[in-house]
Simulated assay, not measured.
Amino acid sequence: MPAQAEDWRGWNVHPDGYPNSVALKDFADEVSEKTDGELNPKVYNNAVLGDQPDAIEQTRSGALDFGNFNMGPMGPIVPETDVLSLPFLFTSVDQMYRVMDGDIGQRFADALAKKDLIVLSWFGSGARSFYNTDHPIEKPDDLKGLKLRVMNNDLYVQMVDALGGNATPMSYGEVFQSLKTGVIDGAENNFPSFDSSNHYEVAKYFSETEHLIIPECLCVAASSWNALDEDTQKIVRTAAENAATEQRKLWAEGVEKSREDVEAAGVKVNEIDDKAAFQKRMEPIYQAFIESHPDMKSLIDDIRATQ
């Protein structure tokens, strides 16, 4: 236990009631209970402690004790995590969980540990798919000519370009109006975001390409972690693993509900059983990535071997 009762501050971007927020609260409650109040984590939701890149740096320095971070913005600090932003790297959310819970996930955790971030467990953030106002996407050529909003990341721009679409980086808040006015034809995201943003009101075709499946970590500052004795570390890690189990369950339930809701609102959802044609279009992106990061080829090969 800590020498005296200690409060931990934790970062979270999501609002109250979100699967991650519920799981993080239960993590904090379990740690407090099992340590008899000697260690009291408190989660600050809605990014009130800063944006994600800033919160990652604060956690590395020990100004924050823990956080729930997506691997997307982690690349500038931990280059290995850029691998996880490669499109069509994973074929399903379940495969991603299997990979991250095993030896490969430990390799990413080791890379984060070198930057003073201790991974306690892996959360999910769903699978991102394309949706648009015009027609279902069943094969790569169905994206030809579509103006599609993507996050501001070169890999995502390259992905859409390789599929024949016109990638249009823009802020998330501009997407609804841009869809409505025809500035863009579509975008990409997961079912809960598609639902909660009301994008389903104007984009009536949702195609489950599942091109990006990016994990998140529940990470602790190395300085905070190292200040704990072994028994307390075990309590904290077990609580984090329990939180991951809960978050994954709540997320899956949220995806199912959002899918049902948007279908009830008239959205046509189509599954894509064989993503091989999409993955083949990604080969130049992978080749360029490996040329720039030759030391990461084994990570990519090992993940692909689990498909």
Rank of each mutant, 00 (worst) to 15 (best):
I300S: 12
E246Y: 03
K280F: 06
P140S: 03
K34V: 03
E260K: 15
K115L: 08
P215F: 10
R60F: 10
L49E: 12
N189H: 11
Y156S: 08
F66T: 04
F88P: 08
S193W: 05
S92D: 05
W251N: 13
G266E: 07
A63F: 11
K115T: 02
G254R: 05
E253L: 13
E201Y: 00
L299W: 10
D134I: 13
R259K: 15
F194A: 11
K25N: 10
D29T: 08
S21A: 12
I300C: 11
Q177L: 12
M282A: 06
P2L: 07
D273K: 13
A265R: 04
S196M: 05
K268W: 03
F123S: 09
K297Q: 15
D154P: 11
E33N: 07
V93N: 09
L24E: 13
S85Y: 08
S207T: 13
P2G: 01
L49H: 01
D154K: 13
E246R: 14
P140C: 02
K268I: 11
L228I: 06
N68Y: 14
D229Q: 03
K249M: 09
E188D: 14
A5E: 10
D301A: 12
F130N: 06
I118W: 01
L64Y: 01
A111I: 07
D26A: 12
F289E: 02
E230P: 02
W11L: 13
E30C: 04
K234C: 03
R9S: 15
S125V: 05
G124W: 04
A239F: 04
F108T: 05
D273M: 08
I290A: 08
K42Q: 08
E271M: 09
K139T: 13
T35I: 01
A243H: 02
I214F: 06
R60K: 14
F123I: 06
N45M: 08
L148A: 01
Q95G: 08
A276K: 10
E38V: 10
L155M: 11
L146A: 05
E38C: 07
D51I: 15
D154W: 06
S196C: 01
S292A: 15
P73I: 05
S193D: 14
M159W: 14
Q52E: 15
I56L: 09
N226W: 02
V13Y: 15
E256W: 02
T181L: 12
A23E: 10
W122K: 03
E230N: 09
P53C: 11
H211A: 02
A127C: 07
S258T: 07
S207I: 09
E241T: 14
K144E: 09
H199R: 15
K25C: 06
F289R: 11
G173K: 14
G145A: 01
I184M: 00
V119Y: 01
D65M: 01
S21R: 10
